[in-house]
Design a protein around this nucleic acid. Structure first.
Lengths: 174, 174
DNA sequence: TATTTCGTTTAGTAATTACTAAACATACAA
DNA sequence: TTGTATGTTTAGTAATTACTAAACGAAATA
């Protein structure tokens, strides 16, 4: 059981790739983040290519979405036209950033469609048993989404959702 | 803008399918849930087939995973060998159930792999700068996962994570 | 201007995942 | 026992998504 550091790092990258896939992200994204996370210095695109085995194209696009999610940061050095990437180490900040990203995009559009269903029902009001049933159910779902939404927004607003806050939450929940 | 109820229902099913896909579930799953959610009575497998347009095989497997997640409930009627399915309407209960489901499965295995990386590092202790750096980072990630994990476990333990609790959480977060 | 060095885009391929059609299994009924 | 009504499994197909290879573009340098 005397693994070299580089073997251990490889396993770690593998593990994060799995986790990435589990959350519905490409596994390459997990690998890129892992490589950056274990590097003491920011890495150029080509260095990431070398260490992950992906191609430049793939890394280019995936590192960009990672940056949009706030999981990595892009920087430049004076007199060097390469871009350098480093992992975000404050995961709570990253969560906030991801939530913010998701606020827009597909999810919001889908949630909005529930709201629209509700509006359509109200616009075609009928004194009918099934109609009422459907109306109540859709309304309940919409309220649920609203609750989730305000929770997400609250998290986004937090200056820093640190461990202390998590334990605070836990104590409220008893 | 005078939609029929059945058109409205169709749109709703479509919307939930989208949401389902967004969260990384097959869109058919969303459709099945939506159909059940809008039905005042529990539906048989064949009725679900009819209303979603999926095949029996697909509905059979997907309704099963929905049941495992606690989003639908299976029941039987005396003197009728069909199974009947109804949607869970307490979404907070459903969330708990889903979290519980995820506790096992792939996710836990992946998270465990981070713990293993940490153990491997400790087993091969070296007084080396890079080694220390990697060790600290992996440790930080592991602590983060632990925090998430205990949060999930706390939610699971809740009798009912109702709206009142959500607002309680919000107040703690200020 | 031509050349080099970088990042991006694109068009196609590989891999994965969702789904279908049909065979199968089980339990009940005749 | 045979036939019928159900749910499940399986083997294959369709659709989607991740990824590659290579062309492109832009910016800096010569």
């Amino acid at each position: 059981m005397s693994n070299t550091l580089s073997q251990i790092k490889k396993d770690f990258v593998e593990g994060l790739s799995q986790i990435s896939r589990f959350w519905g992200f490409p596994k390459g994204m997990g690998a890129i983040f892992a490589v950056l996370y274990l590097s003491p210095t920011a890495l150029s695109l080509d260095e990431i290519v070398e260490r992950t085995g992906l191609t430049k194209g793939a890394v280019s696009t995936e590192v960009r979405t990672l940056a949009r999610m706030g999981l990595v940061h892009r920087s430049t050095k004076l007199g060097d036209r390469k871009d350098y990437y480093a992992a975000e180490t404050d995961f709570y900040a990253a969560i906030r950033s991801i939530l913010q990203e998701r606020q827009n995009s597909e999810f919001d559009r889908a949630v909005r469609s529930v709201k629209e269903t509700l509006a359509a029902l109200e616009a075609n009001w009928v004194e009918d048993e099934e109609w009422h049933f459907v109306y109540e159910r859709v309304k309940a779902l919409q309220e649920f989404f609203d609750a989730i939404d305000s929770l997400a927004k609250a998290v986004i607003r937090l200056e820093s959702l640190g461990l202390s806050n998590v334990t605070k939450i836990l104590s409220v929940l008893k």
